[in-house]
Write a protein that binds this DNA or RNA. Structure first.
Lengths: 218, 218, 218, 218
DNA sequence: TATGAATGAGCCTTCATTCAT
DNA sequence: GATGAATGAAGGCTCATTCAT
């Protein structure tokens, strides 16, 4: 008895996942409308017509990618919020949660497709996906609201706009065709987390790590 | 003598501009590939075939939009950089320069198309446009480099990544299909400028406006 | 009183002729279907729409070119047939009549259009033109028939096929995109007349010019 | 095992050939520009869009027809030149080689398309086809040059012009919309071969076969 | 399971023609 | 006499999708 059958994963299931991965890759590379079903089939090494044995339609593939692709995202973000630690640490973890998958296949493609192409869905599936996106946004927003409430972040910070800013900043990395010259994802995460927490102005408190600042200033 | 003839602007010139505006609007709404030439013609109130009296091709329209649409952008950014004042003010002005047009027709559409659809151009025109984009990016990067050099911004700020961050943050506003709930562009500009300069952490120096900070620290 | 008005040729008449010439040139260069009305208008230096002040339609222009263009042809061929002289001389004159105009503007274009594009006419005008063509063909055929009857040409020569051969040979010059390397039209006329009358075989009667043969044989 | 599989000819191969044949027929009947892809598809009994399962483009079909259609031609002409026999016989065989296919489907269409429409190819493929055409022309020219050298044909015959004449004469048959009234292709071949070799003038030597003439006159 | 063949709708573009001015 | 503006009908081509095998 093979592992596949033990886990109840049929060959079809495996190939379905492959097809979705291929579609995600194609969509990420050339856009949803710019990708033909032949592009996807080519990546899978099958004929165009055969694709329909796995995918009901190109549109449905997009929907599935958007839905499946971000669920883990949301789940992990929830864990981050539930954890303990200073808000700046949570923010940093949230940024990392958002950006780390970009370097991985196929996760990165799923994220990219979700971020850039979910709006091309017809209104039915779009709303389902939009709900997921809103949930994600709300989690981020809550992070900021709590950080303000507990005094970690400035009291004049608008949590809604802050959430937009953080997501926008992260999503911009997602769409980057030219990777910021030679910068690793880790470096980007560090820099962006620093910018969001400490800002760009010269630090009046001479410390590199803001976690220890409050203590040293009090 | 009509105004049109005084300014040497023929009817064709006016309608050409209209056609470009209509194309920009369509592209901004449905994407380049998602917009049919009929969509554009409908916005103009003419037949699809008549569009070609003004536009040589859909592709060429995209190229023209991208090129024309950002030239004023770059020019104004140059002026901002040449001005005097603290770096945080320059940054704020640069952000405003980037975001203010978004509220205007047709400027906003031109910006959106430039940001999101310039990559769909065939390599010829794409490179011309890419050069413009790089120039813009370099100006922003220089802003940060100089700010660091003159001590306005943290010495450990990476100007290249900072430029990516600032542009990414601004461009994310560009793509927002749902305007951040009830927030005016001006509010967004303020908040984003604050976030980038002061960060989110609680201010160790109790000032709301960083412009007055240097004074209070001297 | 100008010449134009004396001859009752209005400016319109002159421009109409110009338009036909331009159309003939365009058709000869790029074919009937390959020529746009803009091509014709460009040659005339007017706008596409203005063409219709002179030409009722592109199709009608083709018809007019075909009809007008060959009438002089037929007339001159009649004169040649009515003349006296040996048949080989008449044949030579007929060939010259057919080929000489090719070097001239706009006559050459009219001939080319008649030969190559008359079949694209819709059946109405086509038949009118076909009648002209048949008349021309019949004249040639009569030349051969008489030449055979009077003993100038071989008695086993089929006049119908001979007419086809002669016309085909001449018309092939008409369509030549590559002028036979450096050969003048006059040289071609000489060579082709020689080939048709004397053939290619070595001459049993040692004369280089068949014109002098009758004398030497009498 | 079917014949198809024995010869490794797939259904696609067969239908591709059919598509080319249909295109050749359409082009021969209505010209390249005058034939729509729908015309071709109709001949095949499929939908217009389905044509593209076999043909990459209308243009490419023209190129393929021109190239494939004449290769056998050239090959056979080479054999004729290599054979032994009097020049007039070779010429006759060359004429037959050129004209016989005209009566056959689809060969005749391929020839007609090659002769009349190869010039509508874009310069890339056109040059490839032009090379074939030049090769063919050169073979004919060589036939005449050798015939002159060995004394079979008149010493004052210009081989280049003679090749143009022979090809022009043959090609005119190709374009004939009205088959020379009731004349079989064989009759045309005979008559044209006679005209080219013996000419039209009365034969001073009363023999039908020119091979024996010199002997009988000496 | 997967393929080959075909469909049919839609898209971008061209172009002959019209007509008010 | 001529123009500029617009039309509407094709035309070539792509592509998501279907289905018998």
């Amino acid at each position: 008895m093979s592992i596949a059958s033990r886990t109840n994963e049929t060959k079809w299931d495996r190939r379905y996942k492959d097809a979705l991965d291929a579609a995600a890759e194609a969509f990420a590379e050339r856009g949803y409308l710019g990708s033909s079903t032949k592009d996807i089939a080519d990546k899978l090494g099958i004929q165009q017509g055969s694709l329909y044995y796995y995918l009901p339609s190109k549109e449905q593939a997009l929907a599935a990618i958007c839905e499946l692709g971000v669920q883990k995202f949301v789940a992990r973000l929830g864990e981050i919020l539930d954890s303990n630690g200073p808000s700046s640490e949570k923010l940093r973890a949230a940024i990392a949660n958002h950006l780390m998958p970009l370097t991985m296949k196929p996760e990165g493609d799923y994220v990219r497709v979700f971020v850039h192409h979910r709006h091309q869905l017809p209104s039915g599936p779009r709303q389902a996906v939009a709900a997921l996106a809103r949930r994600y946004h709300n989690l981020i927003e809550r992070l900021f609201a709590e950080a303000v409430r507990c005094g970690d972040f400035r009291s004049d910070l608008n949590p809604t706009l802050a959430a937009h800013a953080m997501l926008g900043l992260c999503n911009s990395v997602t769409g980057a065709r030219t990777q910021p010259a030679g910068a690793s994802i880790e470096a980007i995460i560090d820099e962006y987390a620093d910018i969001l927490t400490r800002g760009m102005n010269v630090d009046r408190a001479k410390t590199t790590n803001n976690k220890s600042q409050p203590a040293s200033r009090r």
